[in-house]
C-alpha cells in the first residue's frame, strides 16, 4: 500500500533520512519505534507531503505521491498528533467534520458520520456540542482519532497520538484503538517512542535509529532473529512486553476447567483478555509457578510451562 524507496531527507546540513526503504502492506498496523530525532515524524510528513524528499520515491498503491495534488492526498489520509491539536474554536462535531466538509459531503451524511464516530471511539453523543477545553486529555485524544477517521481514509498517519496521556488513559486508548483497527483494518503508520506501546500494538514493527531501519518484522519475528543491536534498542525486558500479546484465551485453548473446586472467591480473578504478563505477575506475587485462577467463573490451573509453551508457539 505504501512503498518508500531509497528516500533521502536533510534539514540543512543534517541528514535525517538517508536511503530509507520501507514497504507497508494494506490493512497493516505498522509501528515506527525509535528515539527522538531518529526521523520517524519526518517520515510521516514525507508520506503526506508536508515535506518533500531530496531524493527517492514514495508510492501509494503503486502511484507516486507527487502525481497527486497535496490537498487531495492529505484528505485521504487521516492524521492525528500528540496532544490531539483539536481546533479550540470549534465544537467537537465541527472538529470531526473538518475533512468531510473540505470534501463537500452532503450535510446529512456528515451529521450521521459524526454520530457514528462518537460511538466508535466510545463517547456519548452529548460530546458533539462540547468545546475542546471541556474535554479531558483522553477524551480529546479519542476525538483526535475520530477526526482522523472522519472521511473514512484508507491510510491513517498517527504521530505519538497517545504521547501526552497518563499511563492509565494511555492503556485504555491503546485497547480501544486496537478494537477499532480490528473492525476497520486501515493501513496505519503509527509513530511512537514507547517500546511497550509499539510491541503491544504492532502488526509490523519497524525499529528506527539515526534515519535508518535497525530491524523490521512481526514483533515475535524480531525476537527470534534478535541481534545485539535490537536488544540494545528495545531493552532486555522486550520479551515481557511481548507477553502482553498473549491472552489467557490463547492459553486455555487446550485445557479443561477444573470441576471439583469450590471456593472460587479465594482465587485471583482474571478475564479472558487478561494477558500472560498479568498471569506471570500473579505467579511472582504468590511465589508459585503453578496458579489456580478464577477465569470468568471457571477454575483453571496454569503453570509457568504453559507460558513458555505458548510463547514458543508464537515464536515459531
Amino acid at each position: 500500500m505504501i512503498d518508500i524507496k531509497n528516500v533521502y531527507k536533510n534539514y540543512g546540513d543534517q541528514a535525517v533520512l538517508s536511503g530509507f526503504d520501507l514497504s507497508i502492506k494494506k490493512g497493516q498496523l505498522c509501528m515506527l519505534l525509535g528515539p527522538s530525532g531518529c526521523g520517524k515524524s519526518t517520515l510521516l510528513k514525507l508520506i503526506n507531503r508536508l515535506l518533500i524528499p531530496e531524493a527517492g520515491t514514495i508510492e501509494i498503491g503503486g502511484n507516486p505521491i507527487e502525481n497527486i495534488k497535496p490537498e487531495l492526498l492529505r484528505r485521504n489520509m487521516g492524521y492525528a498528533i500528540q496532544g490531539s491539536a483539536l481546533f479550540p474554536h470549534m465544537r467537537v462535531e465541527d472538529n470531526i467534520a473538518v475533512v468531510p466538509r473540505l470534501m463537500n459531503w452532503p450535510k446529512h451524511k456528515t451529521t450521521a458520520r459524526i454520530q457514528e464516530l462518537l460511538d466508535l471511539v466510545g463517547l456519548n453523543q452529548s460530546f458533539a456540542k462540547k468545546y475542546p477545553h471541556q474535554l479531558s486529555g483522553g477524551e480529546a485524544q479519542r476525538i483526535g482519532v475520530a477526526r482522523a477517521l472522519a472521511a473514512d481514509p484508507e491510510i491513517l498517519l498517527l504521530d505519538e497520538p497517545f504521547g501526552a496521556l497518563d499511563p492509565v488513559s494511555r492503556l485504555q486508548l491503546q485497547e480501544s484503538f486496537l478494537e477499532i483497527q480490528n473492525k476497520l483494518k486501515k493501513t496505519v503508520v503509527f509513530v511512537t517512542h514507547d517500546v511497550g506501546e509499539a510491541v503491544r500494538m504492532a502488526d509490523f514493527l519497524v525499529l528506527m535509529k539515526n534515519g535508518t531501519v535497525v530491524a523490521q518484522g512481526r514483533p515475535f519475528d524480531i525476537v527470534r532473529e534478535a541481534e545485539d543491536a535490537v536488544w540494545d534498542f528495545l531493552g532486555n525486558s522486550y520479551t515481557l512486553e511481548l507477553l502482553e500479546r498473549i491472552t489467557l484465551k490463547d492459553l486455555v485453548r487446550n485445557s479443561i476447567p477444573i470441576q471439583e473446586f469450590k471456593n472460587l472467591s479465594e482465587l485471583t480473578k482474571f478475564k479472558m483478555n487478561s494477558t500472560c504478563k498479568e498471569l506471570l505477575s500473579a505467579m511472582l506475587m504468590n511465589s508459585n509457578s503453578e496458579l489456580m485462577v478464577n477465569l470468568g467463573g471457571n477454575v483453571f490451573q496454569f503453570r509457568f510451562e504453559d507460558i513458555l509453551t505458548s510463547f514458543g508457539g508464537e515464536n515459531q
Binding site: N48, L50, N76, Y79, I81, F87, V98
Partner: peptide, 8 residues
C-alpha cells in the same frame, strides 16, 4: 500543521 495535514 494539523489543518494542512488534513488537506486545507
Amino acid at each position: 500543521l494539523a489543518s494542512r495535514a488534513m488537506g486545507m
